[in-house]
Amino acid sequence: MKIKSQKNAMWLFFSSVKLSVFLLFTLALVSVFGTIIAQGQSIEYYKSTFGHLWGTVIPLIGMDDTYHSFWYRLLMGLLSLNIIVCSIDRLFATWSIIFPKTHTVKANRFRNKPDRQIFNARSTMTQLRDPIRLFLSKKWTHFELFSTDTGFYCYGETGRKSRLGVYAVHVSILLMITGGIIGSFFGFDGYIQISEGESTNYLVIGQNQKIELPFTIQCDDFSVSYYDNGTPSEFKSILTLKRDNKTFFTRPILVNHPLRYEGINIFQSSYGLLTPEYRQKLPETVVLFFQNPKTRLSYPVKGKLNERVPLPEGKGFLPFKIIRHPIALVVIIWGRH
């Protein structure tokens, strides 16, 4: 009896709706902290941002990598178990309602309802039976008419299978949680910084860990469009994926429009200034061609960087100076959506 009581207590605990609310609230709260707190930073960063105490606690409890932490996976596992037990616990009662073997109707249940209606008919019971059957059978999906010693009564209902909708919701939640757990174990997310014309075949996870990709990503072009007030409205990169020095396709990527290939999602997260390494590769001498729109004459203008060169036809001077050069900052995520 003691073992049975313990089993019942455990079953009641995991079939509790209060447990579902608690787990959902906890996961939502933790996800908020995981979004607010920068992930994958050094302990020095957390100490300088949150102070010595919390800067030490955050990496200690795994908040620096929230979605891969043991306790976050445990919360998702407990929520999955809670949903499964709740579904099983209520399935048999729901099934008996959707597919009843017999219908039991108590007349007093309807006589005592405040919205009941009573009317007198001049027709006999036999004359009323068929018209009522025909009318109500069109209104209700499940309709039956039963005879009694004093007359007859009708039983009907609609939307019976809609009670299965909650199980469809439960299955969809379990699929999302399963995908999240699989992604937390086998997935990864990191970033790479690629300048225009450059390519790479690895990404950086956390601070220094590098993962080699099964292909090479090359940034062919980058462009930014602006609103009238000067703020960026859209930035786009043209990426080429290569393998064994062979190009297999070229695609543009925009913010919230990633490139997906072999389970790897390539997102464009931001852009920034030209890196010092790329600056060193720029030529010292630049040649630009100017064309007069009226005469259609073209003029080559040759000059060195950081110098002012005269424009054709005495139109002034042009400084050859690299102020900023955009780069694509790409985030690679595998096993997540």
Results as ranks from 00 to 15, higher is better:
L81C: 12
T102M: 05
T56F: 08
I177E: 02
N208E: 09
S298C: 12
S225K: 14
L75P: 01
F92W: 14
F290Q: 06
D220R: 12
V204M: 09
N208Y: 08
F33N: 12
S270H: 05
T26A: 13
N306T: 11
Y46E: 06
F143P: 04
A93C: 08
L213H: 06
Q193K: 10
L297H: 09
F92G: 00
F317L: 15
N82W: 05
P283R: 11
T247C: 01
L27P: 00
Y227H: 12
S80R: 09
L145Y: 07
E44Y: 01
S298E: 14
P293M: 02
L23V: 06
I37V: 12
K302T: 14
S195L: 01
L175F: 15
R279F: 02
T49G: 04
F185V: 10
I132L: 13
Q280E: 10
P100D: 01
L259E: 05
R73G: 02
Y271F: 11
C219F: 02
N120Y: 12
G230P: 04
L128E: 01
T66R: 05
P232R: 10
F152M: 09
Q291T: 15
L329H: 04
Q209K: 13
Q207S: 11
L29C: 13
A38I: 03
G180D: 03
G51E: 06
K246G: 05
F70D: 11
E212N: 10
A38L: 07
Y261G: 07
G183W: 08
S147G: 03
Y278F: 09
A168S: 11
G183T: 12
E198I: 03
